[in-house]
Amino acid sequence: MSSWVREQGLQVLATVGVSVAGLATVRPIGATGPGLVIAVLLPLCCLALAARHLPVIRPDLAFPWLATGILASIALIATSDQGTAYLFTYFLVGHAGVRLEARRAVPLAVAAGLSGAAAFAVAPVLPWPVGLTLGLPVLIGLARRSRQEATQAALAAAQAGERAARAEAQAAVLAERARIARDVHDVLAHSLAGINMQLELADALLDTGDLDRVRQANDKAHSLVRESLQQAQWTVHALREDALPLVDSLTAMIESSGHRDALTVHGDVGELPAQVVQNLLRIAQESLTNAARHAPGAPVRVELRRRAADVVLTINNGRVVAPVSASPGSGMGLIGMRERVALLGGVLEAGPITAADTADWIGGWRVTAVVPLEGSR
């Protein structure tokens, strides 16, 4: 900004200097004949030169204004017999290169040079060949125009880059919000739904006087609270990008859901990207919670398989063995699982089991997540 202000200041000083020099040296000035013509043309040239500091002039008026100013300055040269009238032409032609496109500025400059040579021939203030140089300042103006356009293009590119960076940052914020929403859903929605179901069961059993079943429901609610606390710890670790041991965490999760020796591991899964571990644990948690809600008492089998290019997590639960009462849920579980796998570039399949090694599994439900390892972050 300081360089721009300095340049504008120099331009104003140049305009004032040329105008003062013209008013002081251009002669004759009088009330009749050539003096009257000069008395009219000189202020007109000063006004035309001063107008170049008004950027609000519409582009369609720039050509008539500059053409009129140059014509007035040439006429001033031809009318006067001394002075610096030619300075008006130099500065106006140079400014034509700044304000006008080259296809309009160059012909105007050529016309000014030829007219200037003729004017010096009529009024020999300077040798007529000098008049041809009156069109040369257009080159300086065009160079300045090109520099301004390059600067504006650079500023526009910088602004576009800044907007793109803001959009990228906003997208990152939205992605992080979606991630936190999934984690909150996994921890709160399932846990609170299960606790609420057990408490409602205990409340209903109080009227029957079956205290043993009331205690069982109460104990189950306490167990869900403890599990929720553990899941909350997992969520905090995930949000902090801490790496969790996949097999140990998966084993603890499965056992806390009431199933033992249900995990089978194939291959070495010790070194996996943190994002893969976190999302696989969330998918397992969602699947186990759905199994407990929709098929309580059914067997559960979890398989974790490390292959060359990906890792596969499969959660199976057997068919429903007892009537299931409706329990509250958000309905976002399967959507959240698909989102998690999609963010990692993998695929998730979920559906009923139609073929299995034993009849107990047919009619159950299977969730399979395939997550590629290359490029995982």
Rank of each mutant, 00 (worst) to 15 (best):
G116T: 08
A117W: 13
A118R: 07
A118M: 13
A119H: 12
A119D: 08
A119P: 08
A119W: 03
F120P: 01
F120V: 01
A121M: 13
A121G: 12
A121C: 09
V122T: 11
V122H: 12
V122N: 05
V122E: 04
A123G: 09
A123F: 03
A123L: 06
V125K: 09
V125S: 07
V125H: 08
L126K: 08
L126T: 06
L126W: 10
L126S: 07
P127F: 15
P129S: 13
P129E: 14
P129L: 15
P129K: 15
V130F: 15
V130A: 14
G131F: 00
G131H: 07
G131C: 11
G131R: 03
L132C: 07
T133G: 11
L136R: 07
L136D: 10
L136E: 10
P137G: 04
P137Q: 02
P137I: 03
P137N: 05
V138N: 00
V138L: 10
V138G: 02
L139P: 02
L139M: 10
I140T: 00
I140K: 00
G141N: 02
L142F: 02
L142T: 00
L142S: 00
R144E: 01
R144K: 09
R145H: 00
R145P: 00
S146C: 04
S146I: 01
S146W: 02
S146A: 14
S146L: 05
S146H: 04
S146V: 03
R147S: 09
R147D: 02
Q148W: 01
Q148F: 01
Q148K: 06
E149C: 00
E149A: 04
A150S: 09
T151A: 07
T151G: 06
Q152E: 13
Q152A: 07
Q152N: 06
A153R: 14
A153F: 05
A153S: 09
L155R: 11
L155Y: 09
L155D: 11
A157K: 11
A157I: 04
A157M: 10
A158E: 14
Q159S: 07
Q159M: 10
Q159R: 14
Q159Y: 10
Q159D: 12
A160P: 04
A160D: 14
G161S: 12
G161R: 15
R163W: 12
R163F: 13
R163M: 11
R163E: 14
R163V: 09
A164S: 10
A164C: 02
A164H: 11
A164Q: 13
A165V: 05
R166L: 15
R166P: 01
A167G: 06
A167I: 08
A167E: 11
E168Q: 14
E168C: 07
E168P: 00
E168L: 13
A169G: 07
A169H: 12
A169I: 06
